[in-house]
Amino acid sequence: MIELVRNVRLWFAPQQIRHEGSTPDYRFSLANERTFLAWLRTALALIGGGFAVDQFLPDLRWAWRAGLALALLGAGVLCALRAVNHWIRCERAMRRGEDLPVSRFPAVLSIVVAVVAVAMVVVVLVGWAG
């Protein structure tokens, strides 16, 4: 928890990270930035999915529709916040010459997306049957 607070402070303090270690090859920093942007796109896609569930499944009961949309939007928020946190941690690890941080977030996100997809299939099938 203390570590998280320290990381959040780093998000907003660009000069603080320059005090640590040495500047890595700019190509590594740019690769890290592209990974960050890819995660941000994933977050935006989840948010777009939230909109789409609300827009394109009008026959669904309100509770189901709102629940699915909220789950996708929440996943998008988590994904965006985690993207910036992971990027900072990678940047710091590269400056200090440490191993890059490992994360179980990709596994968790895949499971959540799989569960939402299965829920959509069930909802559509039930919608056809009923």
């Binding site: 660009p14 740019l30 977050a43 909220l70 965006a80 916040l81």
Partner: peptide, 27 residues
């Protein structure tokens, strides 16, 4: 080129979060 400043990246991520909040408000 210089590396992305943490504040710049954070603001981009917070834009995304705020977009999700607006989406929730719209729904």
């Amino acid at each position: 080129p210089a590396a992305l400043a943490p504040r710049h990246g954070t603001v981009a991520a917070l834009c995304t979060v705020a977009l999700a909040v607006c989406a929730a408000a719209l729904i």
